[in-house]
Design a protein around this nucleic acid. Structure first.
Length: 210
DNA sequence: AGAGTGATCGGCT
DNA sequence: GCCGATCACTCTC
């Protein structure tokens, strides 16, 4: 599908947003569409990670390694990592070079390629669950190590595009990140309020014995 | 509530 | 080099 006139300017605007401060970049990713492997999702949930800038939860916190190298480069590229022995997760690199900030894509709504996504996720029963969770999102889109380091705003195999219509500020909710028990409970997780495709995961809370 | 899975990286030797 | 703790998760029980 081709780009309609006017998209060029909107893509340039998104590129500029991603290259700027972390939290606006993270919020700006909500509502964007992400296309890969014959499937398109609308991004509904993200988490911000501040790289070297005092964020112990960031994979780049302890400095540059072969794994996280792309995060130290310019914005608009993708950092993909493998975790728990079986799952891929995807980040969009943001901010200035050397900063290593990035935004984890945690959930999306499948808006095209539903049959393909279903075929990739045979265990998932409801369509709203197809890309609900960072690893399921990658799985539904067929994203793996081959996506590492790719540019998202060009014509590569993984393409990120701005929302057709802007997401109203009032539609964006914020809260603590998932799985981060760090000293400060920074509200760096952003999602579209009341969207059924937002992931179910919650911050770890100490277990209350029955 | 717990199993499953393997890359990564710091710390050692 | 090698060891082992860790991990921004998913599924099934």
């Amino acid at each position: 599908m081709g780009l309609v006139p006017g998209d060029h300017a909107a893509v340039a605007e998104l590129a500029e947003l991603l290259g700027g401060p972390l939290l606006p970049a993270a919020r700006g990713l909500l509502g964007c569409s992400l296309h890969a492997g014959g499937v398109t999702v609308r991004i509904t949930e993200v988490e911000a990670y501040a790289g070297m800038a005092g964020d112990p939860a960031s994979h780049a916190h302890r400095g540059r390694t072969p794994r996280n190298a792309v995060m130290f480069g310019p914005a608009g590229y993708t950092y993909v990592y493998f975790t728990y022995g079986m799952h891929w997760c995807m980040n969009v690199v943001t901010g200035a070079e050397g900063e290593a900030s990035a935004v984890l894509l945690r959930a999306g709504e499948v808006v095209d390629g539903l049959a393909v996504a279903r075929a990739r996720r045979p265990a998932v029963r409801r369509d709203v669950d197809l890309a609900r969770g960072p690893a399921r999102l990658c799985s539904a889109l067929g994203i793996d190590r081959t996506a590492y380091g790719g540019y998202l705003l060009g014509d590569g195999p993984v393409r990120l595009r701005p929302p057709v219509r802007p997401v109203p500020t009032a539609a964006v909710a914020a809260g603590p990140r998932v799985g981060v028990t760090g000293a400060h409970d920074l509200p760096w997780r952003f999602w579209l309020a009341d969207d059924p495709t937002v992931s179910a995961y919650r911050r770890h809370v100490p277990r209350i014995r029955p």
